[in-house]
Every structure is written in structure tokens, then in C-alpha cells.
Write a protein that binds this DNA or RNA. Structure first.
Lengths: 195, 195
DNA sequence: CTGAGCCTACCTTCCGGTCGGTAGACTAGA
DNA sequence: TCTAGTCTACCGACCGGAAGGTAGGCTCAG
């Protein structure tokens, strides 16, 4: 293999711990123990704790970004309502699938002390733009009830989806069904709303 | 006066710090310093850090619970749609008003280590029941589009509202307008949905 | 023989929590 | 009224441990 997978393994374990514990509860000792090395050895791959967390969060955002973009690309000929549903399903799948990166990225919204790294703010903003564009598209297609604020609608939707990490349990809910419910709230079934 | 306000003052400062920093970032030294006493003195009023956080969270949940219950009682003769809007506005006001307790209660969803105290789980569940009842009421009144899952709808609503602590800024948004947007999503304007 | 990768050992700082003590207000018995 | 006891609220000093991070050395493949 071209490069040791140590770095990836460290990030995998860090993502798992960050997902359940957030920034402050996750310690370098825990990460090292989960990887199977000593804590000092982490510093051969990363310069600091913050650098590890930053990498995990960026990967998590990138992961969900790519998943949603792929879902939208795969439903390019479908109606806006189906595209919304596909995007929601992709976002929820990234959150509740086997990867811990995206959940960790949501859980670690604010970095411990000091400001949020610029790279994180950038990747987050780029992902938000996907949803901004999708909401615009829905509005132009008349799939949204007239008079609704697109920005509020986007914030509600993202908030509700990300809040699902606190209550979603596989088995109790199905991601596809949930996506249908959420999409129906944002863009009601009752047909197009003429402008 | 019957009792010194020291206890309340400690909880006020703790709520403020917990709101912005969560459980792990908030230290007893910070709380004590904000109050103006030494850290050891905190133990004359509370037995542990967890007891302080528990009191703040319970007060925060109780606060929003009472606010929403009062709003619903004050709109008892209104239609279900107006009652929903009033409840949402009350919840958002409790979150973004001057009290830090409710925001802290949302931020401190999981306690540091060990399980969530029973009293917190109880008060949270009691508050959730208010929304369960309200959603049922909306459904019986036919204000909700047919086919929607009441549980998913409730979780969507709570998640979207609580997520607003991450993006709400006074001035950029108005609580009343926001509540109207919210209510319109859950119970569309277009009149009653016959069953 | 070099350097990537990992180690042991240690540093400083801060965490939640404990200890014994004290200043002051209040109460009660003589 | 004096005074001994008691209670509340607070304090400085300290504890064991754990946090993130550093220094320096071992090992082994290329």
C-alpha cells in the first residue's frame, strides 16, 4: 500500500469518539488507546488535537456534501419534489450510516476554545450552498407554498435533519420514510403552487 | 428576606456559561469567579458540579414548559393553527429571551459522564408530552396534511426549533415572524384538511 | 545510515473535590 | 447583660488525577 493507513485509522477512531462525546469529552489518550498506540505517537501524524478534529470535521462535511450532490445528480431528470426527497435521504443516510464522520461534524459544531478553523467554515459554507440552491430551485418550480421565507425554510430543514442525531435509532425509523415525511412538510404534496 | 439569593446567582452564572460552553467546557472555577466567590464555597450550596447542571437544566425545561403552557392557555379559544403558532413563539422566546436557562438545557443534552439524571429525563418527557398533545390536537382538527406521521412531525418541529440556537441572532430574525413560518410548514394555510 | 514510526518518561496546567478553619449573626442559659 | 454554643457562608490550601503537549531515544526497513 502506498501509504500507511495509520492516519486514516486515527481519524476513524477520532470520529467515533467525537460522535459520541464531542470535542471536550474526547481525549487524545482515548483516541490513541482506540488506535492501539501511545498518545505521543499521535504527534507523528498530527500537530495537535485541533488538527485531528479539524480533519475529521472536514471529512464529515465533505462526505455528506458528496453524498447529497451525487443524489441530486442521480435524480437530475426528476421533479423538484423528488430531488428534495433524494437530498434529504442522502443527508440522513450520511448522518446515520456506518461512517461516524458526518455525525462527528455535526456534534462538533463549535471548537473547544478559540475560533472555528477557516477550512471548516469554508467547507460548511460550501455545503450550505447546495441547500440554498436546492431551495431556490424548489421555489422557482413553485413547489413551495408562496410567502415562505427560503432562508428560514432552509434553516428549519437543516436543523431538523441534524437534530435527528439525538433521537434517530435504526429500526425505530426508516431513513426513506423519514425523508418522505420531511420533504412533504417543506414541499406539500398538493401539487404545484402557481406564482 | 427568607433566603439568600446566592443559590440563584450561582445558577444564573452557571446557566450563562453552560449556554455558551456546554457541560465540559464549563468549570466550577469559572462559575465561582462569575459569582464572585471561591470555588470551595460552591459546595455549601451544591454537592457537586452535576447537581448544579441538573438544577439549571431542570429550571430551563420548566421555564419553557410553563411559557408554552401559558401561551396555550391564553389561546384556548383560538383555532388549532393559532394555538400552534402561539406555542412555537413561546418556545422560541424562551430559547432566545434573556434567560439562559432554556438554551443551557438544550445545549446540555447529554451529561458529561454517567447517565442523565432521572429528574432531567422526567421533566423533559413531561414537556415533550405537551407537544405530543398539541400535534394530536392539530391532527384531530384536520389542520395537518393527511398521511403525515405525528411523531415525525413533532420531532421535525422540535429539532428545527432547538437548532435555532445555532443560527438565531436577534435583529436578523423576528421570533413572531419565525413562528409564523414554522406553523405554516406544519399546518399549511390552505384551510382544513378533511379526514 | 537515515528517517519514519513508535516508544517511555516527563512537563505544565487545570480539573472536580476535600479539608480544616474563621468571621459574623443569632440564640439561649445564667 | 454577659457569654457559650451554634449556624451560615465563606475562605486558603491542598489532593489525586487527567488534560494537551514535549524531549529524547529505540527499532527496523530501504
Amino acid at each position: 500500500m502506498p501509504e500507511g493507513g495509520s492516519r486514516r485509522l486515527i481519524l476513524d477512531m477520532a470520529a467515533r469518539l467525537l460522535r459520541s462525546g464531542g470535542y471536550h469529552q474526547t481525549t487524545l489518550r482515548e483516541i490513541a488507546e482506540a488506535v492501539g498506540i501511545r498518545k505521543a505517537s499521535l504527534y507523528h501524524h498530527f500537530a495537535s488535537k485541533e488538527e485531528i478534529v479539524e480533519a475529521v470535521v472536514n471529512d464529515g462535511v465533505r462526505f455528506v456534501h458528496e453524498a447529497v450532490a451525487a443524489a441530486l445528480a442521480g435524480a437530475v431528470q426528476a421533479g423538484p419534489r423528488r430531488r428534495l426527497e433524494a437530498a434529504i435521504a442522502a443527508h440522513l443516510s450520511a448522518l446515520h450510516g456506518h461512517g461516524d464522520y458526518t455525525s462527528a461534524a455535526i456534534k462538533v459544531f463549535t471548537f473547544g476554545s478559540g475560533p472555528t478553523p477557516e477550512s471548516v467554515r469554508l467547507s460548511r459554507r460550501l455545503y450550505e450552498d447546495v441547500w440554498r440552491g436546492l431551495v431556490d430551485e424548489l421555489q422557482e418550480a413553485g413547489a413551495i407554498a408562496p410567502g415562505r421565507s427560503p432562508e428560514a425554510l432552509r434553516l428549519f430543514l437543516l436543523g431538523a435533519m441534524n437534530g435527528s442525531i439525538d433521537w434517530y435509532r435504526p429500526g425505530r425509523f426508516d431513513v426513506g420514510a423519514l425523508a418522505r415525511e420531511f420533504a412533504a412538510l417543506v414541499a406539500p404534496d398538493g401539487g404545484e403552487h402557481p406564482r
